[in-house]
Amino acid sequence: MNRWGQIVEAIITDENDKSYFAQVNGETFTVAKNQLDGETFQQGETIEGLIYEDMNRRKVLQYQLPDIRPGYFGWGTVTQVRKDLGAFVSVGLIDKDVVVSLDDLPENKDIWPRKGDQLYLTWEVDAKNRLWGKLAADEELSKLYKPAKENTKNQTIDARIIRMKLDGAIGISVEGYRVFIHENEQISPLRMGESVRGRVIDVHKDGSMNLSLKPRAHEMIDDDAQMLMVLLNRQANQFLPYHDKSDAQEIQRELGISKSQFKRAVGQLLKQRLIQHEKGKGIWLLSEGDNNDAD
């Protein structure tokens, strides 16, 4: 019996409308014509491909080699999760997924990947000719990383979670940056393979970064407070001459909101430390440096 996952030479012996048939060491394998990009073979011709048994227990020779195969890593998409077995992952094989065993996934099944998530992995074949997905170890993951520049701080980036830790999660950004998301910077617990979008809150000397998934302070305020922020940013001195003693009709006329709405919006901005105020004078926009000093 041939060992699945090998790249072998095979001899074309027959064909029909949909497939060629090729022999390897006395076993016949199907070569799907719709996967050949129009390429044709002649009987007796020798071809090369990767052999395995598909989900329908057909012996398949895949002529176009998948990017993910033994010794080669890539991003596979989770197609199904079974709590008693593990995660089924599409790795580019025709009519065949590989399984990442529950033994290779976190003990906490709440942070397992879900359908549609992506895992960075390869696969291997056991003694019983079963295909098992193998998650990339740190050494392999390190080949993906590139250092981030300091000016990426405060930028919003997209990342994929690749490793869970006791105090947070490790991911890799679309650009290739290594990111760490502390549990205090998560809105809800993350899971392996999940795609996230967050704000860079720190860039380390080695080029790795810390990410926060929590909304920026100005994203947590209501429409009236947002409007005040816009007006403050438009002023050359980032100042508005309105306060709790201002005339209600003047506030309504100039800002388009009631005095109670104004006071509530100012309260939100003060709580988020986005502005400062002085009684009887007005409100000022806090700079990022002033905001940090207030911590």
Rank of each mutant, 00 (worst) to 15 (best):
G267I: 02
Q23M: 14
L135G: 04
L166G: 03
D206M: 02
K18T: 04
K271I: 06
G280A: 07
A136P: 04
G198N: 03
R199Y: 14
V179G: 01
K149P: 09
L232D: 01
G26C: 09
K134C: 11
R197Q: 15
E278P: 03
R216T: 12
Y20C: 08
Q35C: 08
T30M: 15
I257S: 09
A217V: 13
F88D: 12
Q118K: 15
S101Y: 08
D95G: 07
Q43Y: 05
D202Q: 14
D293N: 00
I181L: 01
G38Y: 00
P106T: 07
E175T: 13
I201Y: 03
Q238Y: 10
G267M: 05
T152C: 01
I161G: 00
M227S: 04
Y177C: 07
A294Q: 12
Q118L: 10
V91H: 04
Q6D: 11
T122R: 01
D54A: 02
P147V: 10
Q23V: 14
Y120F: 15
Q238S: 12
E48Y: 02
D126P: 10
Y177W: 13
Q23Y: 06
D224F: 08
I201S: 12
E139T: 05
M55S: 06
G289E: 14
T77F: 06
M227W: 11
Q155M: 10
V31D: 10
V89C: 00
I170R: 09
F21C: 09
Q62M: 11
A265D: 00
K259Q: 12
G86P: 02
I68T: 05
P70A: 02
E250A: 15
V99A: 10
K59F: 13
S246L: 06
D202N: 15
Y145C: 02
D117Q: 05
D117W: 08
R160M: 12
M209L: 15
E185C: 00
